[in-house]
């Protein structure tokens, strides 16, 4: 039965077989970012333009004369993916109006890592959201500047050791909590915000599809484990992403038109220790610090649940 032969499993039946982010890219073994992008482009399809910030993804995907992209792609600089996407979006709108471009719907993606999003690119992102461009901003968050050698970003979590927030005699590593980018994005009153992780491909694909179908700006925050920067074994990438969700370190939720919805509520969350223990960047932490991290995670999780409950009550 040829049909069964083509679609033997559950997952492949639902997912496009086209690889728009090509094999042979130069990502590290077990790269969470490459995995996330591969999945996202399956949801996006070929009628997509990607505006990439400088960073690992840009470097691993475009060493001249090779490219991993099978969709039109542009890289300009580090801090301006959202601004470049703004220009692309405006251009395509006016070119369509003047009959000088395909009339098909084109997904416009601005793509950056956590540094390019939460630090140097935050302003361009904020401006593009405020101006209501019709595009999707995707932050592949690996919680440090991996491309330049694992320096701290504002998305680096409390207690993580990086090359510019190293753990040492006088320091536990990063001392500030992770900047809450999805919430900051949502505070811009944009219609769609979601957190996701490639360890949950179906969830990620569904959210990406929603984001692309949203009129106006949308934001996807994708936790992308980095074996090199987090110092974990390459085969654990997917598992660590899963543990981030199961421990409540990285809750999966959507904020649609300002209303927050938890996608998975972990009644019994695993202790964060389970998540931390695989990662070299947390190896220096003692029981007190781990307890502090547990406290931060708990507090934030409870806050989220409360907000979700409140938002649900508004729907009555």
């Amino acid at each position: 039965m040829p049909q069964e032969k083509q679609h033997p499993g559950f997952i492949p039946r639902l997912i496009s077989p086209r690889e728009l982010f090509a094999e042979g890219n130069r990502g590290c073994q077990g790269c969470g970012e490459a995995l996330a992008i591969r999945q996202i482009l399956k949801a996006a399809g070929p009628d997509t333009i990607v505006c990439s910030a400088t960073g690992c993804v840009e470097i691993i995907s475009s060493p001249y004369p090779e490219t991993a992209w099978r969709v039109p792609w542009i890289h300009v600089a580090f801090e301006n993916a959202a601004a470049v996407a703004s220009g692309v979006e405006a251009a395509i709108k006016i070119l369509k109006k003047r009959g000088r471009y395909h009339d098909r719907k084109i997904n416009i993606i601005a793509l950056a890592g956590d540094g390019g999003t939460a630090d140097i690119g935050l302003q361009a992102l904020s401006g593009a959201f405020e101006r209501r461009h019709d595009f999707t901003y995707i932050c592949t968050d690996n919680e440090a500047y991996m491309n330049t050698g694992i320096q701290r970003s504002s998305a680096t979590p409390y207690g993580a050791s990086t090359t510019t927030s190293p753990a040492g005699k006088e320091s536990i590593g990063q001392t500030t909590p992770k900047k809450d980018m999805p919430m900051i994005a949502a505070a811009h009153d944009i219609p769609y915000v979601a957190t996701c992780c490639p360890s949950y491909p179906m969830d990620l694909l569904a959210k990406a599809a929603k984001a692309f179908n949203t009129e106006g700006p949308s934001y996807l925050h994708v936790l992308s484990p980095c074996p090199t920067g987090w110092r974990h074994e390459s085969h654990l990438t997917v598992e660590i992403g899963r543990l981030a969700v199961e421990t409540g370190v990285f809750p999966l939720y959507e904020i649609i038109e300002g209303r927050l919805k938890m996608n998975v509520v972990m009644e019994k969350r695993k202790p964060v220790k389970e998540y931390l223990k695989h990662q070299g960047r947390f190896r220096h932490l003692g029981p007190d610090e781990i307890e502090e991290i547990q406290r931060i995670v708990d507090e934030k999780y409870v806050r989220l649940l409360r907000r979700a409950e409140f938002d649900r009550s508004l729907e009555r």
Binding site: E4, K5, Q6, P8, G9, F10, I11, P12, I15, P17, E19, F21, A22, E23, G24, N25, G27, G30, C31, G32, A34, L35, R38, Q39, P198, S199, P201, T237, V238
Partner: peptide
């Protein structure tokens, strides 16, 4: 089931003749 396929960062699995 295909899970190996969708969680491969390198798109290095492909479906063979027999599924």
């Amino acid at each position: 089931c295909g899970f190996c396929w969708i969680i491969c960062p390198d798109a290095a699995l492909f479906m063979g003749e027999d599924g």
